[in-house]
Amino acid sequence: MLVSILTAGAEAAESAGLPQLDASTWPSQLFWLAVTFGLLYWVMSSMILPRIGAAIEERRDRIADDLDKAAESRRLAEEAETAFNRALADARAKAQAVTGEAREEVNAEIDAMRKDAEAAISAKTAVAEQHIASLKASAEAKVREAAQETTRAVVEALIHETPTPAVVDAAIAKAVKA
């Protein structure tokens, strides 16, 4: 009904009317719209849209794949890191053990050496002390002898008489005591 009104209006004013309401052009427009739109729909739905869709899908798959791969690599890297850390800790523990052993060994060696040295030193000290003691004894004997001879010489020079050793001894003892 609307169409018939509009068409009547269009026919009433042929020269100045709206070209849109000139019904004589409608079949041609509809025909060519159907042809072109149908053709475009066919080209789009059968060729172009599947292609674009496939390209986008492919990219999405590829990105997902790459993301998976990246996650896998990350997991591997993390595993490697934990393994590395474990190895590092082991090595450190081992090194500490080795160091401890070495230290003990060295300590033991040092102790042994020290004992040896101490034994040697004490032996030498004992020898030296004996030596000193003997030296001291011989020195005393020599001093006493020297004192006896000196005393005898002094007494002979003074009284021209040779004292007996017993007397000299007693006198020296007396003097030393004094």
Partner: peptide
């Protein structure tokens, strides 16, 4: 408005 102006 257009129809009034041009179609009648």
């Amino acid at each position: 408005a257009m129809i009034i102006l041009y179609a009648f």
